[in-house]
Every structure is written in structure tokens, then in C-alpha cells.
Design a protein around this nucleic acid. Structure first.
Lengths: 148, 148
DNA sequence: ATTGTTGCAAAGTGTTTGCACAAAC
DNA sequence: GTTTGTGCAAACACTTTGCAACAAT
């Protein structure tokens, strides 16, 4: 049975291009992390990434995961989000899919949402502060539908 | 020279009342932490609290600081904010002074700001999600005036 | 006397670093 | 062959926990 080659999304392609442009060599561990991130709709923690990669038989060392995530964050293709759970999460930055997060205080579930008016309000205040705003993060916390 | 007794603000008074109501005994370490927090206009990390208390000759053990902050957070009088620097910060919740934070990615400076339209946008979306929203946190990051 | 509070040291957790080896160029 | 990428283990920083001593009631 022939193995299907999965379709690369624009993000994965663009990320690999950015990496090449920036002078990075092609490394298997990094490619695996990029491919995994590309499949996600929401943010993953380093630990989750480690587990998921191990589960698909492409284990990547923890240190490599952190190093790779840091590179991707610096390249501006991944966003490191701190949702207040004493651990960072990482997600691909897709120009057309900017979103924020709801975090359940009870079970830790993370749910994405987006809202244009909220975005506009942030952009507006960003321009009025004496600060070169480069990004923002909005976290709503409370109880998810299941825990409520 | 007579030692002035500093004026207790409403927050410190209300917090001490809440603690009493909740059945807590009066402890020196906790009183010192509450008094210190009351003087702050913005969020402090546990480490900063430890340093500031030591500097004023009322050193409090690190474990006690964390325990006290957790109690105050649970009582709802202190807000634990995670600004993405791998450490939590804590600030008094003053009903009339809700605010958010600008974090400098270079020097780590934390600056408070508030904005009514932003607040309204958050309240609006909070009502429309399938989630019992209990609070929110907004962090703008970039470069502060000095680092820019 | 009882029970909450505190400090110390040890343990935990998430993340980073040092270093040797493998892989890419 | 040179330089970058990777994995392992050790080191780190922040936070929490166990426990004995102490203080408030």
C-alpha cells in the first residue's frame, strides 16, 4: 500500500523557506517539530510536543524541542503563549488566523477564540501608548462548559 | 522623633477583614506581605516581595510568601498575573483600578495601563462564549520607551 | 491545649546549558 | 572537512511540600 504524502500547508512551506533563508540547515528533528505544529489548530506545550512526536516514532530530544521552538519564535513563525499554567505553549502564526485563548481554571483546557472588535480595541490602544507594541496576548479564564 | 503610623488604605483594611472572616489567624508574615502589596501600584514577583521585605527588616521565608500569596489569590483580593517571564507576579485587586500590562521584551519592565473600550470589548466577548469567564488578562509586549 | 502559621531544607517541575557525536553542507 | 544540528545528562530558576518549632486563639 502506497504511503500518502501529506499535503504541506502554507505555514509549513513558508516556515521551511524562512529557515533556509535564515541560513539554517535542514535537520530532521526540526522538520518533525514544524510538521507537527503545522497540524495543530491551537497551542501545544513542549511536553505535549515531546509526547506526540514520540508517539509517531519520531522522538526528538527535549532540549532540541526547546531550542527549535525558540528559533521558530525568533523567526516570527511561532508564537510562544503563556497562559498562566507555569508552562509555555507554542503555536504557528498564521496571518489569517489570529486568535486568543480561554483557559479553564479547573481542568486546564485551552480553547481558542477570535473577535474582531477586541482586536480593534487592542490595536487602538497599542498606538496610543509610549511603547513599541509588537504583539499581544489575551487570556480569558474561568470554567469551561464541561467543568461549569 | 515620633514614628508616624502610616495610613492603611482601603485595600489593606478590607483584606485583613476578609482574612479574619475566612477564619485566618493574625500572622506577622502575612501582615507584612499584605502591607507591602498595599503600597504597590503594579505587580510584584515573589522574589521582589522577598527582597523588599528583607530590606525593611521584616524578612519572610520564601515558602511563606508563596503560601500567603496563594491564600490571597484564593480569597480574591490579589491577582496572580503571568506576564510570560517564567515567573508569576501578584498585585492587589482594587475594584476601581483594574488594569493590564505592557511588558518590555528587552529589559523586562512591566508597565500598567487601562483602557475602557478594551475592557468593554472583553466584557462583550466574555458573554458570548460557551465558558463561564471569571477574569481576563491582557498583555501587550514589545519595547519600552527606554529600549526602543 | 489546640490548631493555624512560619521558616528551613528538600523535592518538584518546566526550561536551559555543556558537551560529545551525528548530520548537513 | 568544517560547521550546524541533535540527544543526553547535568544544571537552573521558580515554586511547592514535609516537617519541626512557634504563635494565636
Amino acid at each position: 500500500m502506497a504511503k500518502m504524502k501529506k499535503k504541506e500547508s502554507q505555514w509549513e512551506t513558508a516556515t521551511n523557506e524562512r529557515l533556509a533563508e535564515a541560513g539554517f540547515r535542514r535537520g530532521g528533528a526540526r522538520a518533525a517539530v514544524v510538521a507537527l505544529l503545522d497540524e495543530q489548530s491551537c497551542a501545544l506545550s513542549a511536553y505535549e510536543i515531546e509526547e506526540l512526536l514520540a508517539a509517531r516514532e519520531r522522538a526528538v530530544g527535549r532540549a532540541s524541542i526547546y531550542r527549535i521552538l525558540e528559533q521558530l519564535d525568533e523567526l516570527g513563525v511561532v508564537s510562544k503563549v503563556e497562559l498562566g499554567q507555569a508552562q509555555a505553549r507554542y503555536e504557528p502564526i498564521r496571518p489569517d488566523h489570529h486568535h486568543h485563548h480561554l483557559v479553564c481554571d479547573k481542568c486546564g483546557a485551552v480553547i481558542a477564540f477570535d473577535d474582531a472588535p477586541l482586536e480593534r480595541a487592542v490595536d487602538s490602544i497599542s498606538k496610543r501608548v509610549d511603547f513599541a507594541v509588537e504583539g499581544h496576548e489575551i487570556v480569558l479564564h474561568g470554567l469551561c462548559a464541561d467543568c461549569r
